Simulated assay, not measured.
Amino acid sequence: MALEALLFDVDGTLADTEKDGHRVAFNLAFEEAGLDWHWDEELYGELLAVTGGKERIKYYLDQFNTDFEKPENFDDFVKGLHAAKTAHYTRLLGEGRIPLRPGVERLINEAREAGLRLAIATTTTPENVTALLENTLGSESIEWFEVIAAGDIVPAKKPAPDIYTWAMEQMAVAPEQCLAFEDSENGIRSSSAANLATLVTINDYTREHDFSDAALVLDHLGEPDQPFTVLAGDAGDHTYVTVDLLKDLHQRAVG
């Protein structure tokens, strides 16, 4: 079965959004709310065990800040913090402080020229996706993605496969027609459970994760003058990810 669609995770995959984007925005939201919480890089790495910003705040309070007295309207409190964080994150994007990872823009353009269908499958909010795409690829880039599956559109977030399953249902495609892009263990568990062949590009937070189910693991997608490093799998003679390499990976994965 031929490759027809590419499904992209966002945070850590399209851009290194976590350490210098979401983490910074969370801390700004906490400060704005008069809270003395601060998520340093090490702590944030532990909090990334949980996907979803609101879920991450709750996990922090349950596991790392158990003395905090939760207000009666706790869910609304968390939603308010997360909304403030999203506003700060959008501002950081608008200031150009969160660029795309190497090879992302080039590969997306090549995929469009080759007639491949594109989709997003992420636990981050739709607002965060829109802000990232508009501030890196331009406002018209939103239309490049046939489906943007994001945030709370499904109740069970990664590592559950639901977000990928929902995206494929909207596109009316089977897993055998698709290739997913991820950066984390929760991500590969989600895509694998959805029966998707997956290409992984690691980041500083995920380099020690288990990617044994990935079709290929790289440090980044690469550019002609910035070759990738293969961490697991076989990229043949390729030094940066092209549509031809994706078709080869897909063929090997689905037979």
Rank of each mutant, 00 (worst) to 15 (best):
M1I: 05
L3M: 06
L3S: 11
E4V: 08
A5P: 00
L7Q: 04
F8T: 05
F8A: 00
L14M: 13
T17W: 02
T17E: 02
D20M: 04
G21I: 07
G21D: 10
H22W: 03
R23Q: 08
N27H: 10
L28N: 08
A29F: 00
E32A: 08
E32V: 04
G34I: 04
W37P: 05
T51E: 15
G52F: 01
K54L: 01
I57A: 04
Y60S: 08
E69Q: 14
K70N: 01
P71N: 04
N73C: 00
D75T: 09
V78G: 02
V78S: 01
G80D: 06
L81P: 00
H82K: 07
A87V: 11
E95H: 06
G96D: 03
P99R: 11
N109H: 15
N109R: 15
N109W: 00
A111K: 03
A114W: 02
R117M: 11
A121H: 09
T123M: 04
T123K: 02
E127V: 08
E127C: 01
A131E: 07
L133M: 10
E134D: 14
L137V: 09
G138C: 08
G138M: 07
S139D: 13
W144Y: 13
V147F: 01
I148H: 09
A149T: 07
V154H: 13
P155F: 01
A156K: 14
P159L: 05
A160E: 14
T165K: 10
T165C: 10
W166Q: 11
A167M: 05
A167I: 10
E169L: 09
E169R: 15
Q170K: 15
A172D: 14
V173L: 13
C178G: 10
L179I: 14
F181K: 11
E182M: 04
E182W: 00
S190D: 01
S190R: 07
S191T: 12
A194V: 11
T201L: 05
T201S: 12
T206Q: 07
E208F: 07
D210K: 02
D213V: 00
A215E: 12
L218R: 02
D219L: 03
E223K: 08
P224R: 10
P224K: 07
F228W: 14
F228H: 07
G233H: 12
D237T: 15
T239Y: 00
V243P: 13
D244I: 03
K247T: 05
D248M: 13
R252H: 12
A253L: 04
G255P: 03
